[in-house]
């Protein structure tokens, strides 16, 4: 038995008939063909599938697509605007915050959501914020640096300000 759902993915509505058991991550990857969101575990442990749901970072492997019906999802493919990398993407590049690239989209989406409501975060706060996302390559050092870079760029004092 399938159900018709519509999810706003990166600003565009995607409508499909889906089984209720279809995981959101499979909807994103296989129905909407956005393969930047990855799968690294089955137990909500690794965060490779992290996306932003109505402004909050969630693990799309632990959510059914039907639960996101009518809601807004942002994936890594939605970070670039007007051909410009988002500061978090810039940060990961400038600070060498990625190696194999597999955890990177999830890591960036978690960081993106975190920086929406945190400014000038401490090292400890950043590490805490990404503690639901596993990286096997970088030892996290440069991921933290990348987030600090984006934090500084996103929350720079306004020109002429204090």
């Amino acid at each position: 038995m399938t159900q018709k759902i519509t999810i706003n993915l990166n600003g565009a509505d995607v409508t499909a008939e889906v089984e209720p058991r279809l995981l959101l991550v499979h909807f994103i990857r296989e129905v909407a063909n956005l393969t930047g969101t990855h799968i690294g575990c089955d137990t909500t442990s690794c965060g490779a599938c992290s996306v932003v749901l109505d402004g909050k970072a969630v693990k799309s492997c632990t959510l059914f697509a039907v639960q996101a019906d009518g809601r807004r999802i942002m994936t890594v493919e939605g970070l670039v605007t007007g051909g410009q990398l988002h500061p978090i993407q810039e940060g990961f590049h400038e600070k060498h915050g990625l190696q194999c690239g597999f955890c990177t989209p999830g890591m960036m989406m978690t960081s993106y959501a975190f920086l929406q409501n945190h400014a000038h975060a401490s090292e400890e706060e950043i590490r805490w914020a990404i503690s639901g996302n596993l990286c096997r390559c970088t030892g996290y050092v440069n991921i933290v640096e990348a987030i600090k870079y984006a934090d500084a760029k996103l929350h720079a004092p306004a020109a002429g300000g204090a």
């Binding site: 965060g47 969630v58 632990t62 503690s131 639901g132």
Partner: peptide, 9 residues
């Protein structure tokens, strides 16, 4: 409880 992303749900 769990991790920050799990706590969002």
């Amino acid at each position: 409880v769990a991790d920050p992303l799990v706590r969002n749900l």
